[in-house]
Simulated scan of single mutants.
Amino acid sequence: MTRYAEVIGDPIAQSKSPAIHGYWLGQLGIDAHYDSCLVKPDDLAAYLHERAEDADWLGCNVTMPHKQAVIPLLDRLDPLAEKIGAVNTIVREQDGRLTGYNTDAPGFLEPLRADLAQPHLFRMARVLGTGGAARAIVAGLAGEGVTVVLAGRSVAKARSILEELAPEGQHHVAPLAHFADATDFEFDDREGCFDLVVNASPLGMTGQPPLEFDLTHVPPGSIVYDIVTAPLDTPLLQRAREQGFRTIDGLAMLIGQAAVAFEKFFGQAPPRADKDDALRRILSQ
């Protein structure tokens, strides 16, 4: 039998993970494959029990709605996954035990690493959304010394996330609607500061309501980052570029988190010397 990994979820047909991992496996000539597997919530426990008995199964990526449901079914949790409270990667260890990881946080941070390696007088991020992705993003940013303003439809939920994931920082919450209308707020001198705006919600995604966000809330020199992948070039990113802001799209996080998982599954770092240009062309078709 050939070694394999896969991605599970319900639904799963839309996942780009097989294309990402399949491309890297082909480039490296690794004798393994990566598939997708539809797993209904009621079948999750049986699926993991069966796969844990399969020595050729290296593990799986986990997408909605299983990222939290898998936790009590695993043998071990990586500390970051335990802190975030969500698992998106499961690895079958040599002893057959299953370990849960969260690669969303390092995947999100990857395109920001050069910026975060620089010293700053102050670091602030406005994060929109309070779902599972937002939890990973908040944990990742807080670990880099970034003060977070977390905005959601429910201010209470946003506050609860910050108290749980970043209790020691001077973070803030705001209603999502606060950012919909223009502001005449005059930002202070941003020299030496790191400013980031992140759409960590599904708003703006195909089939979802638009993201109502006025760019007057974006400090000068900010990076605008939208994790939505369909469409890849969201209205938020388009408007931000028109006003001269640097932008990062959702494929950056998607490919970044996949790279961490790939190495855990297959024991090699994926080939990325071209800065993912060829892979991006494949995923954008």
Rank of each mutant, 00 (worst) to 15 (best):
L279H: 01
P79F: 04
Q94K: 15
V39F: 11
R97W: 08
G145H: 00
L150D: 04
F266T: 04
T99H: 10
N102H: 14
Y225W: 08
V39L: 07
A166W: 04
K157F: 00
L48E: 03
V148P: 08
L73T: 14
A45Q: 14
K264I: 11
D276H: 01
F122K: 13
G207E: 06
L165P: 05
R280W: 06
E163I: 00
G131W: 06
K275H: 12
D115P: 04
D249C: 05
L74M: 13
E144D: 05
F108P: 00
Q208H: 12
Q68W: 13
P72R: 00
V224E: 00
V173W: 07
K157V: 12
A105C: 13
G267D: 08
F262E: 02
F122P: 01
D188E: 15
I30F: 15
T89G: 12
F266E: 01
G96M: 12
A52H: 12
V197C: 07
G207R: 11
A182H: 04
G96I: 05
L48C: 04
V138R: 03
P106V: 01
F265M: 02
N88P: 09
G132P: 02
K264L: 13
I12E: 04
T234P: 00
G107V: 04
A258L: 00
L279R: 01
Y34W: 09
H66C: 12
A230E: 09
V39A: 11
H49S: 14
G131Y: 03
G221K: 10
Q285H: 05
K16Q: 10
L176H: 01
D10N: 15
P79T: 09
F187K: 07
Q268F: 15
A156G: 11
R246Q: 15
V228A: 09
I12V: 14
E53V: 13
G96K: 13
G145M: 05
V198N: 02
A278K: 00
A117G: 10
Y23W: 15
A13F: 14
L73E: 09
S201F: 05
A86R: 07
E93P: 01
D181K: 09
P219E: 01
Q68G: 14
A117K: 13
G132E: 07
P79N: 05
S222E: 01
V91H: 07
V148R: 06
F266L: 06
R159V: 11
S154Y: 12
L141S: 03
A69G: 13
I248A: 02
Q285S: 08
P167G: 10
V87R: 05
S284A: 11
D95M: 13
R190Y: 07
H33R: 13
L38P: 10
D78Q: 10
N61H: 06
Q94G: 13
D43H: 15
P79L: 04
A158V: 08
S160D: 14
H21M: 03
A134D: 02
K67H: 06
H49A: 15
